[in-house]
């Protein structure tokens, strides 16, 4: 597992040095706008869920990207935080009469708290062990959802709360939640993009490259891994709450290991570290898992996995490889020139 992740990173770094990005970026922007308008232009009645799900899975990709893409931590239980968001919302709405607006921050908060509690002991272990421990955590949450009937409704899940309204406008059909999900995706994308090019993002990248050198540069490695885990989980908590509100149901089947696996696949497929990439990954996943499966049935899972393998083989840095934005130095950047290789002027 470690070897796979390491070689993926290697190739990601390689692809960053080659290839051009501007045309691609414009293309991505156009596609984003098209997606924002698509359900209204095409009419949302055909596959009413699919648009909202794309935005939610885009958000999942963006959140998990903080953990995998930025900090280089393999998390195989990410959807546990999505489940926490969903169940927190369902409980608050069903038993305490909270609205979605009040519950969203609560779901986010509890996802972050849970990630801190889980992350604190697990992030001390390395590589493969972290993957196994997060896998275990995802499993625990799944079985808890099935068995803690008092708060999860057991196998049947929870449902039957009042739909939220905003300025008297009710949210009932899945498409009603589309603007919300899209707004969440946008905020997640912008915030994580900001984090990536900050002191925090650099600390994560340094840990991903070389923990020893990062620690020797004054970075508390475990603490920053925990930050990545927490700042990644918060988006799953929010998306999970929205997902439950949209489906008007939360049940364990949404939070199986498969879901966590597909979340990782979304990040790897799209391009670790790349925001546009992981959003594209999430959209592709929903298109294949929901739209295509109407024609192919369970074969769609195989198709998605095959696509993942193909991309890892021929385009290992993902569909949209991450390329860092250059820092703005005042001095115009000049390429290293052979005639400057004197090396003698090292004084101040």
């Amino acid at each position: 597992m470690n070897v796979i992740v390491a070689s993926l990173r290697e190739l990601e770094a390689l692809s960053r040095r080659t290839g051009s990005g501007r045309g691609l970026r414009v293309g991505v922007g156009v596609i984003c706008v098209a997606f924002a308008l698509a359900p209204y232009v095409l009419g949302g009645s055909y596959y009413p869920d699919i648009w909202t799900d794309m935005a939610l899975w885009g958000t999942i990709g963006v959140g998990l990207n903080v953990v995998i893409g930025f900090a280089g931590l393999l998390d195989l239980g990410y959807m546990a935080f999505y489940a926490i968001g969903g169940y927190v919302f369902a409980n608050a709405a069903l038993y305490h009469g909270f609205t979605l607006w009040e519950t969203l921050p609560l779901g986010a908060l509890l996802a972050v708290v849970a990630s801190a509690i889980i992350g604190f002991p697990t992030l001390r272990v390395r590589g493969d062990y972290l993957a196994i421990m997060t896998l275990g955590f995802g499993g625990i949450v799944y079985y808890a959802a099935q068995n803690l009937s008092a708060i999860t409704g057991g196998y049947n899940g929870l449902y039957g709360w009042h739909n939220p309204t905003l300025f008297g406008h009710p949210f009932i059909a899945p498409i009603d939640f589309y603007p919300l999900a899209l707004a969440l995706l946008l905020v997640a994308a912008l915030v994580t993009m900001g984090l990536r090019s900050s002191r925090l993002g650099r600390a994560w990248a340094s840990i991903k490259d070389d923990e020893l050198a990062a620690a020797s540069s004054g970075i508390g490695v475990i603490r920053y891994k925990l930050y990545a885990y927490m700042l990644g989980s918060v988006w799953a908590g929010l998306a999970g709450a929205l997902f439950a509100a949209k489906d008007q149901l939360v049940s364990p089947e949404s939070f199986t290991f498969n879901a966590s696996f597909f979340a990782v696949a979304v990040v790897v497929l799209g391009g670790m570290g790349s925001i546009a990439g992981v959003v594209l990954g999430g959209v592709l996943y929903v298109v294949i898992a929901e739209w295509l499966s109407a024609y192919t049935g369970t074969l769609s899972g195989v198709i998605f996995a095959a696509l993942l393998l193909l991309v890892v083989l021929v385009r290992p840095a993902g569909l949209v490889p991450y390329r860092p934005k250059p820092p703005r130095l005042r001095r115009p950047a000049t390429r290293a020139a052979a005639d400057l290789e004197t090396g003698g002027d090292s004084g101040p």
Binding site: R9, E12, A13, R16, V191, G194, L195, S198, R199, L200, G201, R202, A203, A205, S206, K208, D209, D210, A213, A214, S217, G218, I219, P324, P326, P327, L329
Partner: peptide, 26 residues
């Protein structure tokens, strides 16, 4: 740090001197 630029490598060394909180970063 092999995947960080020359400037970013030195900026990591600046880590403890840069004063940014979470909101500044985000």
């Amino acid at each position: 740090f092999r995947s960080l630029s020359v400037a970013d490598n030195v900026l990591v060394g600046e880590h403890r001197r840069i004063r940014e909180n979470l909101l500044d970063s985000a």
